Simulated scan of single mutants.
Amino acid sequence: MVKKVVSLVVFVPLAIVLIVLSVANRQAVTLALNPFKPDDALLSLTAPFFVFLFLALILGLLLGSAATWLAQGKYRKKARTESRQAVRWQAEADRHKSRAEQLAGSGLPQIPAK
């Protein structure tokens, strides 16, 4: 419930700001990828300005996500190895428990617990 409220408080104003930017920046602009000859039609793209704003936002999100994912790789690897160890220890504990139950059922003398 709190997560929904927080997301509404964050995303609704963000959506409003993006819509206002889109409406305010409808004029066509040219993005020239050739700095030596900006009027080269092959390496330029003409679109409304908000398209470039959205593309920059999406590119930033993707690059940030990729950087975070790469930076957290060592923690994911550690979690995988510790998970495997936990499964091995649990299996060993289960084997010891079943062996102890077998010994208890066979009538052999028990070692008293302290």
Rank of each mutant, 00 (worst) to 15 (best):
L8S: 14
A15Y: 11
D94L: 03
V5G: 02
S83V: 01
P35N: 00
F54V: 04
A67I: 08
L14G: 11
A91T: 12
K78T: 04
Q90E: 12
V9N: 01
P112N: 13
V29G: 06
P13M: 00
L103I: 03
I58G: 04
G107H: 05
G64T: 01
F52E: 08
L45N: 09
A100I: 01
V2M: 13
A56L: 14
G105P: 00
A79I: 09
A56E: 09
L14D: 05
Q110K: 10
D94K: 07
S106H: 11
R26G: 14
R76H: 07
A104I: 00
L55M: 15
Q110V: 09
P35I: 02
A41Y: 05
T30G: 01
T68Y: 14
V6N: 04
A28W: 02
V29E: 03
P48C: 05
R80M: 10
V5A: 11
V20C: 05
L108K: 11
R84D: 15
L53D: 02
A86M: 00
V29Y: 02
V5W: 07
V20Y: 12
L55P: 02
A91E: 07
L42T: 09
V2S: 10
L43M: 13
L31Q: 07
K78V: 05
L53H: 02
D94Y: 05
E92A: 09
G73E: 14
R95V: 04
R80I: 08
L18M: 15
V10T: 05
W69K: 12
R95S: 13
V20A: 14
P13K: 06
P35K: 01
I111W: 04
S65C: 08
A32P: 04
E92V: 03
L43W: 12
L108W: 10
K77C: 04
A71T: 05
T30H: 00
A79D: 10
R80L: 15
S22P: 00
V51M: 11
P35Y: 02
A47F: 08
P13V: 02
I16Y: 06
G107E: 05
A32R: 06
L53E: 06
V51Y: 11
V12C: 10
L108N: 03
S106R: 13
V17M: 12
G64N: 04
S106K: 13
A91D: 09
Q102L: 10
I16L: 15
A79G: 07
V2Q: 14
A66D: 08
Q27V: 06
L31P: 03
Q110Y: 02
F50W: 15
L61K: 05
I19L: 15
Q90L: 05
V29A: 09
P38N: 04
G107T: 01
V17N: 03
P48S: 10
K4P: 02
L42K: 11
L62V: 15
R84C: 07
L45S: 08
V51H: 12
F52K: 07
T30Q: 04
V29K: 02
I111V: 12
L61Y: 14
K4Q: 13
M1F: 06
L108M: 09
A56F: 13
L62R: 03
V87N: 08
L45P: 00
